[in-house]
Design a protein around this nucleic acid. Structure first.
Length: 960
RNA sequence: GCCCCCGUAGCCCAACCGGCAGAGGCAGCCCACUUAAAAUGGGCCCAGUGCGGGUUCGAAUCCCGUCGGGGGCACCA
């Protein structure tokens, strides 16, 4: 019982000092938040590790790990849109606790990264200062919302105790390679293995070095060069996304279709730079295939599949006429090879140097030059108009034996496939466009379907035509069979082979920014990288006077990245003993992208104090190890991959965080650090809360809360601000749109419980919906009625009766308990709230509210409105928190209705209703319906065509 | 251009496997309480499911087309 609630309300002098007002709600909320924290109410139990509590009874009753995508703590604090998912996971977690399960639900902060740094630069403070201040605000706001987070498990990615392990995982990945032949636990091939195993293979001569020289004869630098080709984290010099406006390079995932940076919308240029990459491509197949075993929104799965972009096809070699060279092409349509009438190379293709005859040098060089100055944006701007030039070279189509022209054109991209194509205008729209533009021959090799236009490529299904030589004929074969046949033929002659390519590229992992995890890598004087030994972790970020990045004119493609850490000379230049005596080294001055910290935080939540490992293996296996049952829709006979039970967050991370985290998790799995194959077993994307935006005649947003609504004579509302008319539209919630509403305001105006109930009853979790402050009062009224059903508003007395429930109330309660439980399980909190309101309204109409009815209702409400739930529970005489009180069970006997209303239809229209027993037989019901007076009047003597009986709810009579 | 999701009352949303279109909330109107207003409580009003076809005894639900909104992919061979 909270004493505070008694006293202060009196001060208002009102006649209802014990009414559930915002003030009273706030007092109750403060008191319970305080008590939950003091008592560690939400602490969960670990089976092993530093927090081992093997005797906790919950360990035997099932486990449940629930997570939110943790926030980046921005300077603006939370607005009402942010907590939607957080409240949903809190409701779910609180419900799960009442079922006896051991529930892990906590919250951390994704506090490294560009936005934090930009905010710090803007405000002239150190990023750590601003970030920490922001986290204080977030923590206060989350606490005020009544989140049942386990505070002691909270992590911050910027905490050296945390990023020590981020660096450690980086080193595990760095010190690994992908062994295509390694056998995984499920019998499949391919797994990350320690790089030492590869070194052994080279040293023993089981694997040839690229140069053919024995391993022992290679210099350390040469060896390192060989290993870099295999390491899962490696440095390579290659074209990367350079963003002068941000002063850093970016991963492909961080660049938009338009060739701009995802953050800031600055132009991005391709520059050849030496950068860290992660070999995520080694996992391309598993990242695609394992999606089938996850309970994720189909939308996200599709995005990941598209992004990885696996396509099956063949590599085919075309000999160059007059040269001892082959042009290797990748095609998904080897069946159309008889229609390959010319070839196209990307402007950057290395073979051009060697095969272009003197006569065409100038043309080709000029074309290459013009292509190189085009940005990606320009290259994509007009995809219809194809440009290109003839190289003067010819190649032999291996199927037809004919010499065909080799062209260079920028519609072929160096970065995909082999950078060269066989052009098949008859079956490819792009090739058709090019062939018509430059008057190149077209041969159809698939019979177009009836009515297909004469002047277009045919990309559909059909029998092969014009596809035969002396050895093989594809004619008449459907596409799939023709593919298989031609691949066999090509393979037999060593001309080609079936293959798979991917759109996914390796993950560019270094950034030239200050506010991130430093790489635990030093470089020696020969330019060889060395991993820092474990005992030198964490490598902390040095304090530098100038942490701001060197940024450039966003359009300055020629600029070069400069890492801020390079300026910290004393930090960079070090003398270390890495086993062969003290030597001088230079530290790597890059920092990791902000995605690094979020790749593994789910693991740290489980075991945040562990000093020996990122997570104790027994703890990981307990919380997220593979389950007995696979998720719904998983392929027959597949193994469960394990992972967090429920993960809720926005859909915008589909190919960023969610892809990266899966990759790291799989690497850690291969290396034996985790038993689960996937980090997040079930994922839900919460919708966004939008807000109305009001604009004046100039289109400028005006403060939404000052807008007045008037209902006009037509009944349509009109809006005005300071007397002038404004327009209303849907939009995001944001400062610049002047429509931000914060949870702090809602708490002051209504209380946090009301706010939580409102957010949850706005609609399904996944849905986008507009915020409407004036509707919040409905949720407050519900809680007020609930309160009044227990507490007298004038005296503060508890008014419940000890009488048994009447029949109707007992049935209503059973129905409600059953429905609310089902809704909570399925995360349909909106309909659960509706059911509770209904039942509460029923109780309101009774003379006195029976304890046996209100107590279960209080328990049901508590996951959504936990403070009022606890408070009423306590006032009803229970000294213990209700957090672990078993959820009300519905008596099955009461769920069976005594009578049900049976609808009698004639030709599908409802004509009569009958009250019948729920277990009435079909025949009996048919007779009853046909005997009904109203029905007899309607159908008279007409013959009956059929009578459909769906006992006990429906009879449909169809006269002839 | 291709693919996916969503259109139910003035508004936010329910309706499980095709079976009475309405659970809940907001707004509006009426009533009670009040000197009055607010707050509170009680009651009432409100759509035939974007549109056009089809399947079915029966369609918000399934199918086809179309319009509107949102999202994804897009010179990826």
């Amino acid at each position: 019982m909270t004493d505070t609630s008694e006293t202060k309300a009196d001060a208002t002098g009102s006649e209802t000092p014990h009414r559930y007002t915002a003030e009273l709600a706030n007092q109750i909320e403060d008191a319970w938040q305080e008590r939950w924290e003091r008592e560690g109410t939400f602490h969960s139990a670990n089976p092993a590790g530093p927090w081992a509590e093997p005797d906790d009874p919950r360990l035997a009753r099932g486990h449940m790990m629930v997570m939110d995508m943790f926030p980046y703590p921005s300077g603006a604090g939370l607005h009402v849109g942010h907590p939607l998912g957080f409240i949903a996971t809190d409701v779910f977690s609180r419900y799960q606790r009442t079922t006896g399960r051991n529930v892990l639900h906590t919250m951390g902060f994704d506090a490294f990264g560009l936005p934090a740094e930009q905010y710090a630069v803007q405000t002239g403070q150190h990023p750590r200062t601003t970030t920490e201040a922001n986290m204080v605000t977030y923590r206060r706001q989350l606490r005020a919302l009544g989140m049942g987070h386990e505070r002691r498990r909270s992590i911050e990615t910027i905490d050296p105790d945390y990023y020590r392990w981020t660096q450690w995982i980086f080193l595990q990945i760095y010190n690994s390679w992908y062994d295509e032949h390694a056998v995984r636990a499920d019998g499949q091939l391919g797994a990350a293995r320690p790089i030492s195993e590869l070194v052994e293979q080279y040293a023993a001569g089981d694997r040839a070095t690229p140069s053919g020289q024995p391993w022992a004869q290679l210099t350390p630098a040469e060896r390192e060069g060989v290993l870099a080709e295999h390491r899962l984290a490696y440095v390579s010099s290659a074209p990367v996304n350079w963003c002068p406006g941000l002063g850093t390079v970016l991963s492909n995932e961080e660049v938009t279709n338009e060739g701009k940076s995802e953050r800031g919308d600055f132009p991005v240029f391709k520059r050849n730079l030496s950068q860290w990459k992660m070999r995520i491509t080694a996992y391309a197949d598993r990242l695609i295939d394992d999606l089938d075993r996850l309970d994720w929104p189909e939308k996200i799965k599709i995005q990941q599949r598209n992004w990885i972009g696996r396509s099956q096809g063949a590599n085919v070699s075309f000999p160059v006429v007059g040269h001892d060279e082959q042009i290797m092409v990748f095609t998904t349509r080897p069946d159309t090879i008889f229609g390959a009438t010319f070839m196209v190379l990307a402007p950057e293709h290395p073979l051009l140097e060697r095969i272009v005859p003197e006569s065409h040098h100038a043309d080709v060089a000029a074309y290459q030059r013009s292509a190189s100055t085009k940005s990606d944006l320009e290259r994509q701007a007009d995809t219809k108009a194809k440009t290109g030039v003839f190289t003067g070279a010819h190649a032999i189509n291996p199927a037809t034996g004919e010499a065909i022209q080799v062209w260079v054109a920028d519609y072929v991209l160096m970065g995909y496939g082999t950078g060269a194509i066989m052009a098949v205008p008859g079956q490819d729209e792009r090739d058709w466009a090019f062939a018509t533009a430059y008057d190149l021959p077209i041969i159809r090799t698939v019979q177009p379907s009836e009515g297909h236009p004469e002047d277009e490529a045919f990309t559909g299904e059909g029998p092969a035509i014009n596809s035969a030589n002396e050895e093989i004929s594809l004619d008449g074969l459907p596409v799939a069979e023709a593919k298989a046949a031609i691949i066999d033929w090509l393979a037999d002659r060593g001309l080609g082979e079936g293959t798979i390519t991917y759109r996914l590229r390796d993950w560019l992992f270094s950034r030239q920014r200050y506010w991130g995890e430093p790489f635990p890598i030093v470089w020696d004087e020969q330019g060889v990288a060395h991993a820092l030994p474990d005992d030198q972790l964490p490598l902390t970020l040095p304090d530098v006077p100038d942490y701001s990045p060197r940024t450039f004119d966003p359009e300055d493609a020629e600029s070069m990245p400069e890492a801020p850490l390079a300026r910290a000379t004393e930090w960079v230049e070090v003398e270390l003993d890495l086993g062969d005596g003290p030597k001088r080294y230079r530290r790597d001055t890059n920092t990791m992208p902000n995605w690094a910290g979020s790749c593994w935080y789910h693991l740290r939540y489980m075991d945040p104090e562990n000093k020996e490992a990122p997570v104790d293996p027994a703890v990981e296996a307990y919380w997220i190890g593979p389950r007995e049952e696979t998720v719904a829709g998983a392929p027959e006979g597949s193994r469960d991959p394990g992972g967090v039970d429920l993960y809720i967050g926005g859909a915008e991370h589909a190919v960023l965080h969610l892809l990266y985290a899966r990759f790291w998790h799989k690497a850690l799995h291969d290396l034996g650090y985790v038993s689960s194959e996937e980090p997040f077993r079930r994922l839900i994307n919460q919708g966004m809360i939008e807000a109305y935006v009001y604009r004046d005649h100039r289109g400028q947003p005006v403060p939404a809360e000052e807008v007045e609504e008037t209902i006009g004579e037509t009944g349509d509302p009109t809006y005005s601000w300071q007397g002038q008319p404004v327009t209303k539209e849907h939009g995001k919630m944001g400062k610049s749109l002047k429509n931000v509403v914060t949870p702090d305001e809602m708490r002051a105006q209504y209380g946090s419980d009301t706010f939580r109930v409102y957010e949850m009853s706005m609609g399904p979790l996944e849905q986008y919906r507009p915020w409407e402050t004036r509707a919040v009062v409905g949720s407050q009224r519900f809680l007020q009625r609930l309160w009044r059903n227990v507490v007298d508003e004038e005296t503060g007395e508890v008014t419940v009766s000890e009488d048994p429930l009447d029949e109707a109330t007992a049935r209503f309660l059973a129905r409600t308990a059953d429905g609310v439980r089902t809704d909570f399980e399925a995360l349909r909190v909106n309909t659960a709230v509706a059911k509770m309101i209904e039942f509460n309204n029923h109780l309101t109409k009774l003379d006195r509210v029976p304890r046996a009815a209100i107590e279960p209702l209080v328990q049901m409400v508590a996951p959504v409105a936990p403070h009022i739930g606890e408070e009423l529970w306590s006032r009803l005489g229970h000294p213990e928190s209700l957090a672990y009180e078993p959820f009300p069970e519905a008596d099955p006997a009461l769920l069976v209705e005594e009578t049900v209303t049976c609808v009698v239809q004639v030709k599908g229209k409802v004509r009569d209703r009958l009250e019948v027993s729920p277990d009435i037989g079909e025949d009996e019901l048919r007779e009853l319906a046909l005997g009904s007076e109203r029905i007899r009047e309607l159908i008279g003597d007409a013959e009956l065509r059929t009578v459909i009986v769906r006992a006990p709810k429906l009879v449909n009579i169809v006269p002839a």
